[in-house]
Computed example of a mutant assay.
Amino acid sequence: MSAPAVPGYRLRRLVHRGTSFDVYDAWSDERACPVVVKRTRPGAAAEAGRRLLREGRMLLTLTHPHIVRAYEVPQVDRPTVVLETLTGQTLDHLFDENGALAVRDVAELGRQLASALVYLHSRGIVHGDLKPANAVNAQGLARLIDLSLAGPPRVWRSARGTPGYVSPEQARREQVSPATDVWGLGLLLLEAAADDDPYPVGDDGRYREGHGPLEAPVPLSRRRRVPARLGDLVTAMSAFDPAARPSMAHVRRELEALAER
Score class of each variant (00 low, 15 high):
residue 83 L to H: 10
residue 199 Y to W: 13
residue 34 P to I: 01
residue 22 D to K: 01
residue 136 V to F: 12
residue 253 R to P: 11
residue 83 L to R: 03
residue 255 L to P: 12
residue 116 A to S: 03
residue 116 A to C: 01
residue 67 I to N: 02
residue 207 Y to W: 11
residue 106 V to I: 05
residue 197 D to M: 01
residue 134 N to Q: 00
residue 130 L to D: 11
residue 84 E to P: 00
residue 70 A to K: 03
residue 207 Y to T: 04
residue 88 G to C: 05
residue 114 A to I: 00
residue 66 H to V: 05
residue 212 G to H: 02
residue 217 P to H: 07
residue 230 L to F: 13
residue 8 G to A: 05
residue 148 S to T: 14
residue 68 V to A: 15
residue 240 F to C: 09
residue 97 E to Q: 10
residue 228 A to R: 12
residue 43 G to T: 05
residue 25 D to Y: 07
residue 124 G to K: 01
residue 115 S to W: 13
residue 212 G to P: 08
residue 167 S to G: 11
residue 215 E to Y: 12
residue 123 R to K: 13
residue 39 R to F: 07
residue 151 G to D: 08
residue 157 R to M: 10
residue 73 V to D: 09
residue 162 T to C: 06
residue 15 V to A: 04
residue 30 E to M: 02
residue 178 P to A: 11
residue 124 G to S: 06
residue 32 A to R: 08
residue 220 L to P: 09
residue 128 G to P: 13
residue 179 A to V: 06
residue 208 R to K: 11
residue 244 A to K: 03
residue 56 G to L: 01
residue 36 V to E: 10
residue 81 V to D: 08
residue 200 P to L: 07
residue 152 P to M: 04
residue 209 E to L: 11
residue 142 A to E: 11
residue 86 L to N: 09
residue 201 V to P: 09
residue 211 H to W: 14
residue 134 N to R: 00
residue 25 D to T: 01
residue 175 Q to Y: 09
residue 11 L to I: 04
residue 37 V to N: 00
residue 192 A to W: 06
residue 68 V to W: 05
residue 136 V to Q: 05
residue 212 G to V: 09
residue 24 Y to I: 04
residue 59 L to I: 01
residue 158 S to P: 00
residue 104 R to G: 15
residue 90 T to R: 14
residue 152 P to V: 09
residue 47 E to N: 09
residue 35 V to Y: 03
residue 125 I to Y: 11
residue 153 P to N: 06
residue 175 Q to L: 15
residue 156 W to K: 02
residue 113 L to H: 11
residue 231 G to H: 10
residue 45 A to P: 08
residue 158 S to A: 06
residue 113 L to E: 12
residue 190 L to Q: 05
residue 75 Q to G: 13
residue 82 V to C: 02
residue 32 A to M: 08
residue 61 T to P: 02
residue 177 S to A: 10
residue 57 R to D: 07
residue 36 V to W: 07
residue 170 Q to Y: 07
residue 48 A to D: 10
residue 137 N to H: 10
residue 80 T to E: 09
residue 119 Y to D: 11
residue 99 G to Y: 04
residue 184 G to D: 07
residue 209 E to K: 03
residue 242 P to I: 01
residue 168 P to C: 03
residue 75 Q to M: 08
residue 203 D to N: 14
residue 64 H to L: 05
residue 100 A to E: 11
residue 1 M to V: 12
residue 62 L to E: 13
residue 42 P to H: 04
residue 2 S to E: 12
residue 145 I to D: 02
residue 54 R to I: 06
residue 7 P to W: 10
residue 119 Y to T: 08
residue 55 E to D: 10
residue 202 G to D: 03
residue 52 L to N: 01
residue 154 R to H: 12
residue 27 W to M: 04
residue 2 S to A: 15
